[in-house]
Design a protein around this nucleic acid. Structure first.
Length: 730
DNA sequence: GTAGGGTTAG
């Protein structure tokens, strides 16, 4: 095991105090080493400040056997003592020799009034104060001309020679480097400085600024190259360097590299300050390692750190991404008890998090609190809130907020416009959407509708059954040069299909393929739903299109309609098709296939076979639940055909139980869902009429829409009347 | 943007 000092932050107590640290040079050329992660997954320490939090994540895997945990937990300072006493040196180990052992730890901590050693340096990196540059005007002109110089290396070199007849001072070089706004130029200027900077050697600040430019251009390999150069040349890496490298890795999704540099910091004796630390918290958060984030957070807190709004924003984003409401409450509680006032970004992140955790009411009161605190919402705040109200179908709140936005002249950008349009689609506000859409087109707005805006409009017309208008919008897109994306086509095809215009839908599909759209599972699912919807005579046409997008689905359909095909053959084909599909598409595929079988008179056992397979492959995990007083059939994620198939099977099995005089619960209930989503509307009412036709004793539950309940006695007498035999005999 | 960290869309 290679001991890494940062591991001590996570590992059980024994690893930090009993392992002899062995220092290894970081091999910058080596590929990422995900093998180091399991160590980071070691068991988190007890968390006294976090007792109330129950995260939905499973606990981390057990500690690797090499890092033994003992029953007693030493204090944080004990755990970190070897680290703080052996590593706090100016010298960069890695730059000297790879195997020099650190000196023996000096004894103890003598001054009890001093704070304990921490994982986190309490002091921010100090910035030197610059003398005001007397020649700022000249410099500005200079950097503008360099900014406008051609990118071509030879031409830029000539421009540099002309701009600096004498070697620039360090301050002037820094000013220019900061203002180039192009990473190739910044790098070239930096290299030029190496030979033209006169006496003054390149220091960490110049490296840091160059790295920042490379980071903006997402050139992480070059950032690491510069970092290695610093190590080779003996230029010490400071907190600014590390935070820049770590965020550069993060921006390129090279999280393993970010972690490796963080570990290297401790190994070389640089203790992170809160800027670097919160950058690293975000790295672990984006890796989904929430336990590790909390461990790091608590260790720093135990060392006396009062997190700032940025750190809380990182935590809020993390809990939001996990939909972890308890975590969000924890963040709010921590800020309150520490007296940290949330800033606008923290509010925005928390609102977004509340939305992801499905808490529209709390989002609303948080927004009220924010405004009451005197903060003014920006585009991001409003986008988050509008999205939440739209998803929750909170028409009144959405419209009220919209009114406030207009009367307060709160800022709008095109993302907010598009979010408002999507909200209108969710709420069915056709007229309002049309007004917004026209507003976007006004030249003084500075916002032109893009393909998101058009798609939202197509969606609105689609759910309102206005196929002609939706089709006109596609024409308009093509005319005005707004290239439709796959979502625009999918929504339009869906809309035309629902209107029964299958031929037009297929023509739109052919257009999309001609214009380079590569069908995804969502588009295939849309075509598949058209197979279920269409008339007998139209089926071949739809299958011909679908075959281009997903031949395996078509093979399966052709197999399903043949009487002689066995269950095993179906299963084989179905499994293959499912394996090819994305996880989110699997249940819709199965639902649609059941609808196809039922609507087109396929052999009668097929729908049941597919439902059975869907259950085996866990596409319908909560279909049946039984408690002692109630048995529930949950049809919420099923299509109409699938729901009917499941219902018939359920009744059949319950009838058997009645016949065999098994122990039955007091109630039977069916849940179709309230049908708040515009595509799922109708399952409840369709079911109500089906139950009525069957004279089934299920009654609408007034307290819960989409819920039907029958008592045991009523159910038994219905079964004994022989009524369900109409379909259970099939 | 003034050497470094956190927030917007099927």
């Amino acid at each position: 095991m290679v001991f890494s000092p940062a591991m001590a932050l996570f590992a059980g107590p024994a690893s930090a105090s009993t392992c002899t640290p062995t220092f290894h040079l970081l091999d910058l050329q080596s590929p990422s080493s995900p093998r180091s992660f399991p160590f980071l997954l070691s068991k988190p320490s007890p968390r006294p400040t976090f007792l109330c939090h129950s995260s939905p994540t499973k606990p981390s895997p057990p500690t690797p056997s090499s890092a033994k945990t003992e029953s007693t937990t030493p204090s944080l300072s004990d755990q970190l003592r070897p680290l703080s006493l052996t590593l706090l040196k100016d010298k960069d180990y890695a730059s000297s020799t790879s195997h020099s052992l650190p000196p023996k730890p000096k004894p103890t901590w003598v001054n009890p009034s001093k704070p304990k050693p921490s994982v986190l340096s309490p002091h921010r990196h100090r910035r030197p104060t610059y003398s005001l540059n007397p020649d700022l005007r000249h410099l500005s002109l200079l950097s503008r001309s360099l900014r406008q110089a051609p990118d071509d290396p030879a031409a830029f070199a000539a421009a540099l020679t002309e701009a600096f007849p004498h070697p620039p001072s360090r301050e002037n070089a820094l000013f220019v480097l900061n203002s180039l706004r192009s990473w190739p130029k910044a790098l070239q200027f930096f290299d030029w400085l190496k030979t033209h900077a006169g006496e003054s050697p390149l220091d960490a600040i110049l490296y840091n600024v160059t790295m920042k430019s490379l980071r903006a251009g997402r050139q992480h390999d070059l950032v690491e190259h510069l970092a290695q150069e610093m190590i080779d040349r003996g230029v010490p890496l400071d907190n600014v360097t590390y935070s820049t490298i770590i965020t550069s890795a993060k921006r390129c999704s090279r999280f393993d590299r970010a972690v490796e540099w963080f570990e290297r910091m401790y190994r070389t004796g640089v203790i992170p300050d809160e800027v670097t630390y919160s950058a690293v918290l975000d790295v672990y958060a984006q890796l989904g390692k929430r336990e590790e984030v909390m461990t790091l957070y608590e260790r720093a807190r135990a060392g006396g750190w009062t997190p700032d709004p940025v750190a809380f924003s990182v935590l809020a984003k993390m809990f939001g991404a996990a939909g972890d409401y308890d975590g969000i409450q924890y963040v709010l509680q921590e800020m309150k008890s520490l007296g940290v006032k949330p800033d606008l970004v923290v509010y925005n992140t928390l609102l977004e998090a509340m939305g992801k955790a499905g808490k529209p009411g709390l989002a609303r009161s948080l927004f009220d609190e924010m405004v009451a605190a005197g903060l003014s919402p920006n585009e991001k705040t409003l986008t988050a809130l509008i999205k939440i109200y739209g998803k929750a179908r909170w028409n009144r709140d959405a419209l009220e907020l919209w009114e406030r936005m207009r009367s307060n002249k709160w800022p709008m950008d095109f993302i907010l416009y598009n979010t408002l349009l999507s909200m209108c689609a969710d709420l069915g506000l056709e007229g309002e959407a049309e007004k917004l859409f026209e507003d976007m087109k006004r030249p003084e707005r500075g916002t032109r509708p893009d393909n998101w805006s058009y798609t939202a409009m197509i969606n609105i017309y689609g759910s309102g059954g206005k196929a002609e208008k939706a089709l006109e919008l596609l024409e308009e897109m093509l005319e005005t040069g707004v290239e439709p994306n796959i979502m625009s086509y999918t929504c339009l095809i869906q809309c035309l299909g629902k209107a029964g215009r299958i031929g037009d839908a297929m023509r739109v599909f052919e257009t999309s393929v001609e214009r380079g759209v590569i069908p995804d599972d969502r588009l295939c699912g849309c075509l598949l739903s058209l197979v279920a919807l269409c008339q007998e005579g139209e089926m071949e046409m739809v299958l011909t299109s679908l075959e281009k997008a997903n031949p395996r689905l078509v093979e399966l359909i052709k197999m399903l309609r043949k009487e002689e095909v066995s269950f095993n053959e179906v299963q084989e084909k179905f499994r293959g098709m499912l394996n090819d599909a994305t996880v989110e598409a699997r249940r819709p595929f199965c639902n649609c296939l059941i609808d196809v079988c039922r609507n087109h008179g396929f052999p009668s056992q097929r729908a049941n076979q597919l439902l059975h397979l869907g259950t085996i492959y866990r596409l319908y995990p909560h279909l049946h639940t039984k408690s002692s007083d109630e048995w529930l059939l949950n049809l919420r994620s099923l299509s109409f055909g699938a729901a009917n198939t499941a219902f018939e099977e359920w009744i059949k099995s319950l009838s058997d139980s009645v016949e065999k005089k098994e122990v039955l619960p007091q109630y039977f209930s069916i849940n179709t869902g309230a049908g708040t989503h515009r595509f799922s509307q109708g399952l409840a009412s369709a079911f109500a009429s089906r139950l009525e036709k069957l004279a089934a004793p299920f009654r609408r539950n007034e307290e819960m829409s989409g819920n039907f309940v029958a008592s045991r006695e009523d159910f038994i007498s219905w079964v004994q009347s022989g009524a369900p035999a109409v379909f259970t005999a099939l």
